[in-house]
Amino acid sequence: MIDFHTHTPLWTSASWLGGAGFDADDFVRFMDAVGISRAVVLSHDGLFHSTPEANDAVAGFVGKHPGRLVGFGTYSPRRPEALAEIERSFAELGLRGLKLHPWLQGFSMHEQVLDPIMEIVAAHGGILLCHDGTPPYSTAGQIAALARRHPRVPVVLGHAGLHDLWRESLHFTQETENLYLCICGTPPYAAARILDRAPAHKVLFGTDAGLSDKASQDYAVARVLEIDEWGITEAQKRAMLVDNPARLLDGAA
C-alpha cells in the first residue's frame, strides 16, 4: 500500500504538538511494521517557516530510501523567491510535488501568485497536495478553483474535508477533472461514503504519520488498522491503497 500523506519530523520549528525525533530508517521501520510500501513525505518545517534548507532536508530524508519515500516540498507562495525555490525543489532536489497549507502559510487559493507556481508544477509533471477541511482558507471549493485554472496539474485534497467539510470535498472532486482526495483524518463514515460516490480512480489514503510523539507513529498504525472497520469492498480498498496512488505517482494514466 501507498501512504499519500506523511511528514518528516519537525527539525527546526516549534509546534503545539510535542512530536518525536526520527530518521528515515526509523520511518521505514514504521512503514514495514504496518505494510506501507511507499509513502509521500511532505515538508513539515517548511509549513511553519519556508526556507530552501527545509526543502533540502526533505530531499535528504527521502534520499535515504528513494525506492520507498517520495518527497514533496513547500514554499510560502507570497515570498519573492518562491518561484525560484519551487523550481529548484523539482529540478535540482528531485522532489515530486508541492505541499501547500493555506491556513498555516496564510494565503488564499485565489491569489494570482499561485498561477506561475502551478505552471512550474505542471512543467515538471508534479502534483499539488493542499491541506483542506478547514475554513476560512482551506476549503475544497477554493482549491478546486485553482485546479480548474491548471488542468494539467493533479491537485490532491490532503484530508478529504475532515469532519465538517467532507461533503464539499466530495462534491468538488466529482465535478473537477484534476481534483483528487486523500482520506486522512476523515471520519470513517465519511470515508465510506466518499469511496461509494467519488470517481473510483480519485480516492487516496494517508495517515499523517510523522506528527506522533513516538517514532513508532502509533496513531498512524491505528489509522491503517481501522480501515478494516470501514465496511468497504476489497476493490475499493485496493484502488485507494494501491492502484490510485501508484497511477498518480508513476504517471501511467
Binding site: L17, G18, G185, S212, K214, D218, Y219
Partner: peptide
Amino acid sequence: YAPWDTVLGE
C-alpha cells in the same frame, strides 16, 4: 478520533 500519542497525551 483523538490520537493518544499526540492530542490526548498533551
